[in-house]
Design a protein around this nucleic acid. Structure first.
Lengths: 232, 232
DNA sequence: AAAATTATCTTGACGCTGTTAAGATATAGC
DNA sequence: GCTATATCTTAACAGCGTCAAGATAATTTT
């Protein structure tokens, strides 16, 4: 689909919007063939340009993958925030909601998820990528703290200072590890031997409830400190 | 190192022990260059044979990676069992011990760990691989049940029937997800932005204690049920 | 408006990869 | 000692990412 986002106007030269066409092609290839079947030449082919063309926009393959990873991380954050909104309205557990959104996103496009977490060369120090990563991480930190009855670290909009959250780090790591681990185990096929009907999605549907409920219950609530009294 | 496990006796033909030489070379390459820098030709080069030679022993690259993955899974299981033994003698928490062993193994050779979990084409249905995977999974299931005060599913030595452990599946998934997620986040560099002294190993050392303690505490103990009656 | 500059894309080539077919050589069986 | 089989080499193939050089389009300058 999205043949090339815009055909070469007349001749062969000057695609015009190659950067976004390459990204669109890359997303398609990742969705169709996964990360293993992903090649720069195939993306260029779909965008209707020569293999050397993308170098002007991304430098090299690493640059393209970094761009994809940035978008992927952004979608991850967006999916989590949407899940929070939905949970707020329907009164569900917020932490379980973002956990579900995280795994669902990974399962929806495993190739892309693998790019986000650097299963192939990419630049983790790229500013845009770091910004997307920081945003998603900030959501997780905030929700973990809320789940424990603690106020957010900073007013929304500001990026959280990294060293400030040190005290909560183990709790955040627990939450992230659970959702990330479950995601990777699922998409890498490590759980396929469990069989059952419906494949991986069904495995998620069957176990997500209890799994994330245990996660939420595992985070120790801060009782005596701060304003809000913890329940339990 | 381990130049070729045994030099070509005289002429160029007939290495003699190519299979194990290839595996040794592959382990070296994975340790040195990681999965991204891993190639079949480089392994063949180190083993002192032509690029086409390994095909008689492994079929193709997938076959070699499957063999490596099998050994990797076996080592994972061995490390976990050794950790249990150590924890028994020193009175530590058994579940925390195998969790630590799992992450430590992953961090010790990330390239190999990635092969085990199929970041590159391999045959997950290979009998030897499945046996190794089942063994490691069996250890995890047993320890999760012990941690909850439940008896093992089957006498040691017999392979656990998969569908029997269904009731405990969420708990097992929680444990596996935590250790696997923490491992992959570490080796993929997703936590590097947290900075701190000592890098990833230090990050593990600093957080493993509370992280795995929370995991152990999160597994609900089976208090009154005794017999294998379903609960909840 | 014409010319010069810059950005963009093509062509062609390089060394690398995994895989295959055909031939050479060593080991094992008879 | 001859034959059969397993093992390895050589040579070639297509596909990969990348680079240098040249062609073309868009933009800016004059």
């Amino acid at each position: 689909m999205a043949e090339a986002t815009s055909r070469p106007a007349r001749g062969h030269y000057h695609h015009g919007a190659l950067r976004q066409a390459m990204i669109a092609a890359a997303e398609d290839v990742l969705a169709e063939r996964g990360l293993g079947g992903f090649t720069l030449r195939e993306c260029a082919r779909r965008a209707g340009v020569s293999p050397a063309a993308p170098s002007h926009h991304f430098g090299n393959l690493t640059g393209l993958l970094t761009a994809i990873a940035t978008l992927g991380f952004d979608d991850l954050a967006t999916a989590m925030e949407a899940a929070i909104t939905a949970a707020e309205e329907q009164g569900g557990n917020r932490l379980a909601a973002i956990a579900r959104a995280y795994v669902e996103t990974a399962l929806g496009n495993p190739g892309r998820f693998r790019v986000v977490f650097g299963q192939r060369d990419m630049d983790r120090l790229d500013p845009a990528f770091r910004a997307a990563a920081t945003r998603a991480f900030g959501i997780l930190v905030r929700e973990v703290r809320l789940s424990r009855g603690l106020p957010p670290l900073a007013p929304p909009g500001e990026k959280p200072a990294i060293h400030v959250l040190e005290p909560d780090l183990p709790e955040v790591l627990l939450a992230w590890s659970v959702v990330h681990g479950f995601s990777t185990l699922l998409i890498d096929g490590a759980l396929d031997f469990l069989g059952g009907e419906g494949g991986r999605q069904a495995l998620l549907d069957r176990n997500a409830g209890r799994l994330f409920a245990m996660l939420a219950a595992a985070l120790p609530t801060a009782e005596g400190l701060a304003k809000p009294s913890g329940r339990d």
